[in-house]
Design a protein around this nucleic acid. Sequence first.
DNA 1: GATTCAATTGCAAACGTTTGCGTAATTTTT
DNA 2: AAAAATTACGCAAACGTTTGCAATTGAATC
Lengths: 342, 342
Amino acid sequence: MGNTVSIKDIARKFKCAPSTISRALNDHPMINIDTRKTIQEYANKIGYQKNTISLSLLNHCSKTLGVIIPSISHYHETAIIEGLEAILQPAGYLLNICVTNESHALEREYLDRLVANRVDAICISLSQETFDYSLNEHIDLAISRSLPIIFMDRFYHALDVDRVITDDFKGAFMATEHLIQMGCQRIAHLHGPRGITVSQQRFKGYEACLKKYGRNVEDELVKQVMFSPESAVEATKFLLDQKAKPDGIFAVNDEVCFGAMKVIQERNYKIPEDIALVGFDDIPLAAFAPIALSSVSRQSKKIGEQSAQLFLSKMNGISDHQQVTLEPELIIRESSQRNHYS
Amino acid sequence: MGNTVSIKDIARKFKCAPSTISRALNDHPMINIDTRKTIQEYANKIGYQKNTISLSLLNHCSKTLGVIIPSISHYHETAIIEGLEAILQPAGYLLNICVTNESHALEREYLDRLVANRVDAICISLSQETFDYSLNEHIDLAISRSLPIIFMDRFYHALDVDRVITDDFKGAFMATEHLIQMGCQRIAHLHGPRGITVSQQRFKGYEACLKKYGRNVEDELVKQVMFSPESAVEATKFLLDQKAKPDGIFAVNDEVCFGAMKVIQERNYKIPEDIALVGFDDIPLAAFAPIALSSVSRQSKKIGEQSAQLFLSKMNGISDHQQVTLEPELIIRESSQRNHYS
DNA sequence: GATTCAATTGCAAACGTTTGCGTAATTTTT
DNA sequence: AAAAATTACGCAAACGTTTGCAATTGAATC
């Protein structure tokens, strides 16, 4: 705090102007080579550290990226952050990470603070509340002051924004089709929280696939859950309590599958023989579930990487909006591998 | 970028000095109540946002905390971040989160950048490399410029630093003792990566407990793993290949237990009857493991909360170093619950 | 010896905000 | 009516750095 040394301090030491020190430290050819070296060595010795804040003020550029996410407790989100960091660290950027807990109020506040901090751009995954009530004035305001905003996963505009998403519809379609090919006749769906694009898209993919094979969505085979195993317990019990039980379940994510497995095994059904199971996200523990879990990978880390690259390309002057859609990948493991085909 | 409005712009609009605008916006009583309101309304209308950067420059305080962690892919680390955020968001702070991937070089670089960015303090969990080779000049340098540094989990100094840790030794002791009370005769340990305090402390707790009960650590019952289920597979096979197999395993963390369970079940041993299992961290999926997993909770979120509070207390002028040690808690589930006592 | 040129270095403004102090203008007190 | 007090605002410096331009120095040219 008190003992940070500035360029002025060094200037006093050398009895010269701050500008000379600045140029010397930046290896400006205008400064005599010898004085340059002397100054650099001295600065090094006393551990001088350039004050980036003054630079930010001067250059209108903070070399910092704001990240707003609803949660940080799932593999998907941490992988996104890892992806962002993998690209932006070498580029000299720091990350300001803000977790909204799905709260719109917090999202607004964080957005304001990031703007006040003059981050160079914001990567955001909208909160559920923002979604539910289409509360997007804060986003519009940020966009209107031409702050680059990159949407990840969840976005509210169809056009005119930058975004990186995975094709959840397609992923859900693939998962459902796989269950059909494994001979499942009654495929249930553990539906994610309402209002979130990701949940909706996965349901639509499930629906579309059933339709393609001449089947209909049966209301009693679709049950809503949160993104946690706990919430899946009750929902799975509900499904298993139906007169005509499902023989396949496509769940909105892998954590939910862990909850579902617990219930299925308690009731002594066999996975995948009695009930086949496919999740979403391909979390690291998926392969180590009670029965190794089939899952749709949405390349979470790549979402972060692509968002970062999209940001960098904007910094380089590419101004038209880009929309990147990543391909999901179905990873088949024991929980759905029946070895008999329909 | 271009269209951000400053206090000077507003001053021009009102044909007055910037200082008047500043005071008006800060509700300074020196300014006439009416002009104050007028200016505030105008600022509000055009969406004026105070430039925090200039304030940071002025006040030598950035309202930002640097966080350096080796990884972000486990529950423990994300919970720490949640804890930090829970306390620091209401206090008006933002988090600069840096993930080192256990690399010393990256840790150095991030530390430098955070210093250059004049964060108000740094919460750090040292990288494995920093640990292995005791490379701590960068830390010493940061401390020497009286930047508050708070160590989480891993630290290198015994004294004279601020730190928040969990009593890993005690947690490991509790876990081992629990296995002994469940009647285990040969208790193995899946040892974490060498050089990391957490691994060492947990081993020592295991060792001390065995000693207390008149047993010795047997080399062939201690196998080293990484913090992942994959790495546990081979290690567990090694343990099960011993002439005298273990009938209890204490593992360095829960992910490792998932890997171990896979192997144990493949070999048709029963958990907990043949082999009882206890992990560490109490991750959210622990209760949903193939056999609900007993685990030692180290109150990860609380580590973040306490670190944040320690930081705030330092900001309030408390200058002597504080060392907080949290109590671990043993959560007993099926994987170790044998219902028969020795 | 005066002039030009190149090589170094200093000056000052700029980024956006706050704040102590000075100064008008207005009101109150004597 | 003069003096004192109050109210409301402006000036300028400060935070740390960069950068265009001016200024100084010394050497080289005519």
